[in-house]
Design a protein around this nucleic acid. Structure first.
Lengths: 137, 137
DNA sequence: ATACCTGCAAAGGTTTTGCACATAC
DNA sequence: GTATGTGCAAAACCTTTGCAGGTAT
């Protein structure tokens, strides 16, 4: 809540209710919602906010690194209020996405350098499997 | 070239020239082309093949695990004829994608199990950085 | 006061779909 | 011969854009 205020001031971006709403929503959930889901969730509280504004707010928030964009290969993006580098796992049955806490793969960037001529700056690690709920069935 | 024949026979899929063309193209290149690029590349040899057919062929090939779909978060999919699990690296400057050979992250699936309740089946590891060509500039 | 942001509608790009015709088996 | 696949055009889908009016600074 603080970070958005100071970062927006520093970058001379306007602190609008819509941007705050999107940011707060992402910070308040462990889910990894798409733009559409964020839009629908904020609808009751911000009935006049448009989907385009959600997209624009997300783009801004990603640019100033207050949120993270993740892409699990479904043709749409999901967003994560947790900007620490951490792996994600998606259920192949129900599509839900969870964080994996307690492990970080940032060290891979330097480890990989002996296998590629690229200057490696970042990485994304995605796991796919079956979530506890779907396993029961 | 053999694998497609036997796998298609086994799954009772028809071995059409279009499907063979898409498969052979992906096997013959180290690039990671999009559907559009595959379509354009095959145009000279198969001038009547439509883009929809390329998409359908790719979907079938992915389903029977003869090719791999990769998604680097650009809003489109890329395809890889190399189905062994291997990491990819994308240049943030020119967008090109390369394989990283000599290292495999399949062991992560079991390593990660102590950090998640999911039954982990597969993973995708993507690196982002600057390719040798773009570094020169 | 003014530069920036919102909301709307329209456009853009990628992928899918429905259907008649064609073809691999 | 028949089930399946192709090719075409249209549709569906996600995301971006242009612009007039509104708002944060």
């Amino acid at each position: 809540m603080d970070s958005i205020t100071s970062i927006f001031r520093e970058k001379k971006l306007k602190l609008t209710p819509q941007r705050i709403a999107v940011y707060k929503y992402l910070k308040s959930t462990k889910e990894h919602p798409s733009a559409e889901v964020i839009y629908k969730s904020l609808q009751p509280l911000y009935p006049t906010m448009s989907l385009a504004t959600v997209y624009k707010a997300l783009k801004t928030l990603v640019e100033v690194k207050l949120v993270q964009e993740i892409n699990l290969g479904e043709g749409n993006f999901r967003y994560d209020g947790n900007t620490c580098s951490h792996p994600h796992v998606q259920c192949l049955s129900c599509g839900r996405v969870d964080d994996i806490d307690g492990i970080c793969f940032e060290d891979l960037n330097s480890k990989i350098s002996e296998f590629t001529k690229y200057e490696v700056l970042s990485n994304q690690v995605y796991f796919y499997g079956v979530c506890p709920d779907c396993k029961e069935e």
